[in-house]
Design a protein around this nucleic acid. Structure first.
Lengths: 209, 209
DNA sequence: GTGAAGCGGTGACCAGCGTCACCAATTTAA
DNA sequence: TTAAATTGGTGACGCTGGTCACCGCTTCAC
């Protein structure tokens, strides 16, 4: 489906008319519901997404464990797929829409050229690299220092911040999956956090205090 | 000290004459012995290094633990300092020469311009970002999956590969530090690896089999 | 309604590893 | 040559978190 410039312009204020035009000519817009897998592990990347609206989460997995690496929010992009796309190697992560999302998909071969041609888009990806880098470093630090209760609490407050809701509607199982641990462990820790007065478990959800 | 183009040209074959000239005009060359700290944690980055010869190792630390993140080899650069330099934020890592090294230091403000102007240097940093990204992902995976004996063995074989020596002259203490664990743990694991026939401990060193 | 599936809760157990407290051997410094 | 520091080796102990085996409750499908 053809993209109109007006459609994408508000989301990409740093892009000039010329860049918006070439994007409109070659890009694709997708409107996806929550819970869609937009990138599979091992897959070769032909289109690199920029999230216009919504929220996408990015996972890595080893053996049968999974781990939530980071969220891609509005006007952000997915460095891992950018990287995999440009080097033409299979993706090491997978990505799922956490909320209904509006995505702008750019073909990798074109993007490869645009990056050299348009400073604004080059700038965007440098920013994304820097951002994800520090996030991955934080992840490494929390894995190394390790305390699971701290990780669960950070996970909850982070999620609460992103969603702008003090009450999260979430299952123990999902927390466990996204942190790469087991459900029982999360249950135990949540009880402990509740006793410490940091959270409150209400029916079908968790309130962060 | 002024740099001659001939001095750096052999290490940077993808850079054209013009780029080499501006680098020669603004860059600095440093020849450092092994064990020098070239970047401290928390420090603001004014010069971004490219390693011409030698080997530099990059650490992160939390509380009183440290962790070896990756090595910077010949013609590679340090993404973390690049990132910290461009965003003008303090460094979250520190770096030490593992071997005597020849470094080319580029002023961040100039580099910021060059990146836009010279595709070759832009290319270099994209490559580095991609490389370090996958390395950090590997690190996250090994921390998450966790088995310490595997990490020690990977550490040793990686080091042996980089140094191109089957016998490593290294202390248990250093292994422990670079993996973010305790010396006793390493001693225990090395004994186990020796029993499994994967390594052999000889006086003052370790042979990888 | 009835059975099945999903969710949360709990106790028991165990492996991994960080920590402590030593000790012996070797190397280095004074 | 002595003393001091470095290195490696070990046993004991405890904490964290992964696993297993259940159980009761709620929700959903049929």
């Amino acid at each position: 489906m053809p993209i109109s410039i007006e459609e994408i312009k508000p989301f990409l204020p740093s892009f000039n008319e010329e860049l918006l035009e070439v994007i409109a000519a070659s890009g694709v817009i997708k409107d996806l519901p929550a819970g869609m897998e937009i990138l599979k592990e091992g897959q070769y990347v032909k289109m690199i997404p920029i999230v216009l609206e919504g929220l996408v989460k990015v996972f890595t997995s080893i053996e049968d464990k999974e781990l939530l690496l980071y969220y891609i929010g509005s006007t952000q992009s997915c460095i891992m797929s950018f990287s995999a796309g440009l080097t033409n190697s299979p993706s090491r992560i997978y990505a799922i829409t956490e909320e209904p999302s509006l995505l702008l998909l750019l073909p990798t071969d074109k993007l490869n050229v645009w990056v050299k041609q348009y400073p604004a888009i080059n700038e965007l990806f440098y920013q994304q690299y820097n951002l994800r880098y520090t996030e991955m470093l934080d992840m490494i630090n929390s894995l190394l220092f390790g305390r699971m209760d701290q990780r669960v609490y950070n996970y909850l407050s982070e999620k609460s911040k992103i969603k702008e809701e003090r009450i999260l509607n979430i299952r123990h199982k999902q927390i466990a999956t996204e942190l790469g641990t087991a459900r029982e462990v999360v249950t135990r820790i949540l009880k402990k956090l509740e006793q410490e007065g940091k959270i409150r478990q209400i029916e079908g959800g968790i309130e962060i205090i």
